[in-house]
Design a protein around this nucleic acid. Structure first.
Length: 1000
RNA sequence: GCCGCGGUGGCGGAACUGGUAUACGCGCAGCACUUAAAAUGCUGUGGUCGUAAGACCUUGCGGGUUCGAUUCCCGCCCGCGGCACCA
């Protein structure tokens, strides 16, 4: 029988059989060890499910199937995230009700999903836009409301001009709406928020508990953006104050007015030369002096006009205006001007900052533009190699940087013994630095005529060992630039000569060999004579009682100081904002709140849930009035107060879709339960999720929200765990055949439906996972797919040998009579057994690590080993017709191959399994066992290296020891050639791997 | 700018904990089968030089550590993703 592999027929057949037998419907109460294998549920927004969905689901499915073969009761549920802006926007465009378009989109998605051969349990399907689901979304809202975690506040929110709704920060990309790319502006509105910031610390800390990609953990940490610092108050001199006034400070201080600032660099506070308020800061009006009023108002109007995109654009030059007032630095009592500038954000910290231009890039830039002074407070400190036993002296050091303008080189000393290089330098010992430097140059190098150019004004500390003095020094280094006037030199003393040599070094080399980190940093500024900016940590200077401390220590002491003086305290700030969840749109869960004239804000009682979204609504399009379309449905809006029974109105905002998806994984095992959101027993058994697979783009949104909600429910004692997803893996992106991101305009889209139709799901699955690393994705190559197809067809063809195996042994060589050597033996030969064992191990381990590409490579290799190899002429006739020879493979071997292939090609494996005469499904078999002993190769090839290069290979056993290996090596003619007349100085032996000989 | 990931044959990509770089697949070449083509199978395939044996070179670039580096360290270049005036 030469039946061709017909994927359409086979896949259709098994889809029906599996659906009928319900093989993938998980029995949630059965006792097997459970495995909750979850994919991010699809969002049926109108486009077909794209190749990315297929990639993710297929990878997760292979993993799940492997778990199933290893005895786990695998639950792989499926559902639809159906509410929200994209679905609604799609409906508006199509001119239909979102309910209808969503239904038809789901219908198509379902067909696609079912064609992929995944373990989806359709009996637990759910859709977030159905009342049976969103009842629990509303229930969740009430829980948060109860705990004070859902609240309303007037706040500047992101407002999409096109979608005409509020967006969460996470949904604003580069100042544009994530979904429609329209401009997003800031608007002040009363909004519903979830207090995710209360959980910020735990959301960071608990990342340690989960097995997630490290990069995703880092992304979440950065997104939350915790920063430790201090908040402190600066008193403001009242508005009548003039800088020209020279009154005692105390008299001028307005005790009631103070500016609170937040900083993470309190160690630089002595470098503060001005203070900046954000334009929206409430103090702006109070402290602006009459003569600055005009200017300030002009500036405020001007900055309001800017959109967020413009304001945040880095190219934009910083602008600001002086208020006329001054603030007092509590540390030194100094008065510094207060400015207004829009580079300070009102939404972060206190909306005001202390400006330290010497140590902050933004302040530096601003100060430069407005000619504000700069003051150094922290000096760089570098520790080079020192000798621990020696004493360390502290001294001022004059360092001479002598430039030769003739050839643009610099004068350096190279120590003879250590090759240590440095500029000529010497202690000043109270002497004038220029004189000291000149003297050192003369003594050490002999150059007589050098001209002083300038001194580098920043302090630099360096700690190092001086070979010429055999001592350690902490140097307060003063760099001086000289120019060489002429070559005139005097004789250098013998003592100096013996130690080092004067050399001229090219400009580029200077930075390189001196390896003086901080000088390098400043080299350009130094040459240009510019002021420098140092943003690192170091040793404090010009900082009163704190001078001499290192930054870290100073931060603590200064915070203590502030606390003692009661003007400040340590404070932790987050970039993360509370989650704005209200949407002025139709297609979402109504927020279960009513407003009563008498009782105020009232939550809808649990028993009245769900608050149904009215289905018959004339116009569901957004109005842009700040209120959602539900506001124009009186039957919805008008209700009675749950408390007093009086007249009341419903909240007309709907919830952000991310609320729906923040708990869906909890709901899956509870589908059908309309009494409670989570039944304790089943929830305890199935959660948390064991493996979660989905795109990395959800790290800062969905995954963060889901973790937050899980923690809230944990704290409410509704669940025992506080992390929802134990393991997380991301799929990479599948690119078009041209290596570019797939897009309609580029015309490089691969449609999953077409791949299934043309090649079948098995080829699709196997190819897409073979392409490259799962987390990397890569370009889709139709030619590469051919290779995978060939491989599967080979597996298919092999079946012919086993057809009717029970009645007659295949391949019995009728002519030669030597069935063992050439035929399909009943008992497979040892070689095949060993290769099989290795493949079983490798494929299993690789799937476990999501290394599907190498697992498939191992399967291909096994197939080649089982079918290819030496030419078998006795079987030639069959080799011709079926395209392969053989190596003595038994039916059992073939079955094992099918089992380990089945996660990748579930349809074909099932079909062949059945054809071999098996009654039950291949997918409920056990992962084949193998004998560990067979894994070990008994003979190994040992590489022989001579002086690091492989020169020959010898065959040995795993047991071969170093001496034996050496003997073997010596017998090799190739090796002898290299050993001839030489002495073996060193032998390194890695058992079973290589022998490395060092000869000379 | 900051954070993260990556750079390996003609191409997609392998490589344990520092131990024979290029597994597996594509492509290409030769052979077999065929009247022929396709399909299939077998063999070969990093580069340069060489008739050959072989030699030398090779994991983005430049240094370093090591008997030995794709792997570790230092300094760069390029690509991708995220954040972006967060004080």
């Amino acid at each position: 029988m030469a039946e061709k592999y017909d994927h359409k027929k086979i896949e259709q057949k098994w889809r029906e059989v599996w659906e009928k037998t319900g093989i993938n419907n998980t029995d949630l109460v059965s006792k097997d060890p459970k495995f909750y294998n979850l994919i991010m549920f699809p969002y049926p927004s109108g486009e077909y499910l794209h190749i990315g969905h297929a990639y993710s689901d297929m990878g997760a499915d292979v993993y799940g199937r492997h778990k199933q073969l290893n005895g786990f009761n695998v639950f792989m549920p499926i559902g639809y995230d159906a509410f929200g802006l994209p679905a609604e926007n799609f409906a508006i465009k199509a001119g239909v009700n979102p309910k209808d378009s969503t239904a038809s989109n789901i219908e198509h998605a379902e067909k696609q999903l079912k064609s992929w051969g995944c373990l989806f349990d359709w009996s637990h399907k759910m859709t977030t836009s159905e009342p049976s689901y969103y009842k629990w979304t509303q229930w969740l809202f009430l829980k948060l409301y109860e705990k004070g975690l859902a609240y309303q506040k007037e706040a500047p929110v992101n407002w999409c001009l096109k979608c005409m709704t509020v967006l969460a920060n996470e949904q604003v990309i580069d100042g544009l709406c994530e979904r429609c790319d329209a401009e997003v502006i800031q608007k002040n509105m009363k909004q519903w928020f979830f207090k995710i910031t209360d959980y910020a610390d735990r959301l960071i800390k608990d990342l340690d508990k989960v097995d997630w990609p490290e990069s995703s953990k880092i992304k979440q940490k950065n997104w939350i953006g915790r920063s430790e610092g201090v908040e402190f108050k600066l008193k403001v001199k009242n508005s009548k104050f003039r800088p020209e006034d020279d009154q005692p400070l105390a008299e001028k201080v307005d005790e009631d007015l103070s500016i609170e600032v937040f900083t993470t660099r309190i160690d630089t506070v002595y470098g503060m030369t001005y203070v900046v308020l954000a334009p929206e800061h409430p103090l702006v009006g109070k402290i602006t002096t009459p003569d600055q009023k005009k200017e300030v108002e002009k500036y405020l109007i001007q900055s309001q006009k800017l959109t967020d995109i413009e304001r945040q654009s880095l190219e934009k030059e910083k602008t600001g205006v002086f208020t006329g007032s001054y603030a007092i630095n509590p540390f030194n009592g100094e008065k510094v001007p207060v400015w207004i500038a829009d580079y300070v954000l009102y939404g972060y910290g206190t909306g005001a900052v202390m400006a330290v231009p010497a140590h902050d890039e933004r302040d530096f830039e601003f100060a430069k533009k407005y000619k504000l002074p700069t003051r150094e407070a922290v000096a760089p400190y570098t520790k080079f190699e020192t000798k621990p036993d020696l004493e360390t002296e502290v001294r001022d050091l004059a360092i001479a940087v002598v430039h030769n303008p003739q050839d643009n080189t610099y004068l350096c000393l190279e120590w003879k013994t250590t090759k240590w290089r440095a500029f000529p330098s010497g202690g000043t010992d109270g002497e004038d630095t220029i004189t000291a430097a000149k003297r050192e140059v003369l003594e050490e190098t002999g150059y007589k005529n050098i001209k002083f150019v300038k001194e580098f004004r920043n302090t630099i500390f360096e700690e190092f060992y001086r070979p010429h003095k055999n001592s350690n020094v902490i140097a307060h280094s003063i760099y001086l630039l000289f120019e060489l006037e002429n070559d005139e030199r005097q004789e250098v003393s013998e003592k100096e000569k013996a130690q080092h040599e004067a050399i001229w070094v090219k400009e580029k080399e200077v930075e390189k060999f001196l390896n003086i980190k901080h000088l390098k940093l400043f080299w350009e500024s130094f040459q240009a004579g510019e002021e420098i900016l140092f943003t690192g940590s170091g040793k404090l200077v010009n900082s009163g009682e704190f001078s001499g401390l290192f930054s870290e220590e100073a931060k603590e002491k200064m915070a203590d100081w502030l606390e003692k003086k009661k003007v400040g305290k340590t404070k932790i700030n987050y970039r993360l904002h509370d989650w704005s969840i209200g949407r002025q749109r139709y297609w979402g869960d109504p927020i279960p709140i009513v407003y009563c004239e008498k009782c105020g804000v009232q939550p809808v009682p649990e028993k009245d849930l769900p608050v149904k979204l009215p289905e018959k609504i004339k116009d569901f399009r957004p109005k842009g009035t700040g209120k959602g379309p539900l506001a124009s449905v009186p039957e919805f809006v008008n209700t009675t107060c749950p408390k007093c029974g009086g007249k009341a109105e419903r909240e007309t905002d709907t919830m952000d879709t991310f609320v729906d998806s923040s708990f869906y994984y909890l709901r899956y095992p509870n589908v059908g339960n309309d009494k409670e959101m989570m039944a304790p027993e089943i929830t305890k058994k199935w959660l948390p999720v064991d493996m979660y697979v989905g795109g990395a783009e959800h790290v800062t949104m969905h995954l963060l929200y889901a973790r937050f909600i899980t923690k809230v429910l944990h704290d409410a004692k509704l669940i025992k765990f506080d992390e929802p997803f134990i393991k997380l893996r991301h799929q990479g992106m599948i690119l078009g055949p041209d290596g570019k991101k797939m897009s309609k305009s580029k015309g490089n889209i691969i449609i999953p439906d077409e791949v299934v139709r043309e090649h079948g799901a098995d080829v699709f699955r196997t190819y897409i996972l073979f392409m490259g690393r799962f987390e990397d994705g890569g370009p889709w190559n139709p030619k590469g797919l051919v290779g995978v197809k060939r491989f599967l067809e080979k597996v298919w063809k092999m079946y012919k040998y086993f057809e009717g195996l029970d009645s007659r042994l295949r391949g019995n060589d009728k002519r030669g009579g030597n069935d063992k050597a050439v035929g399909w033996a009943k008992v497979s030969n040892a070689e095949v057994q060993a290769k099989m064992a290795r493949a079983i191990k490798k494929v299993g381990e690789d799937i476990e690590e999501f290394k599907f590409n190498t697992a498939i490579a191992a399967l291909m290799k096994l197939m080649n080993e089982m079918s290819g190899g030496e030419r078998d002429f006795s079987a030639r006739r069959s080799a011709k017709s079926v395209g392969m020879t053989n190596r003595g493979v038994s039916k059992e071997d073939y079955e094992k191959l099918l089992i380990i292939l089945s996660p990748f090609a579930p349809f074909m494996a099932e079909e062949l399994w059945e054809r071999l005469g098996n009654k039950d499904s291949i997918h409920v078999q056990g992962w084949p066992e193998y004998d560990e002993k067979l894994i070990q190769e008994e003979t190994v090839t040992i590489a022989i290296q001579v002086n690091g290069k492989v020169r020959d290979q010898v065959v040995a056993t795993v047991e071969t020891n170093q001496d034996e290996a050496l003997e073997l090596a010596k017998t090799s003619g190739k090796i002898q050639k290299y050993l001839d007349g030489k002495e073996i100085k060193k032998v390194i032996y890695v058992k079973g791997k290589l022998l490395s000989l060092v000869v000379s």
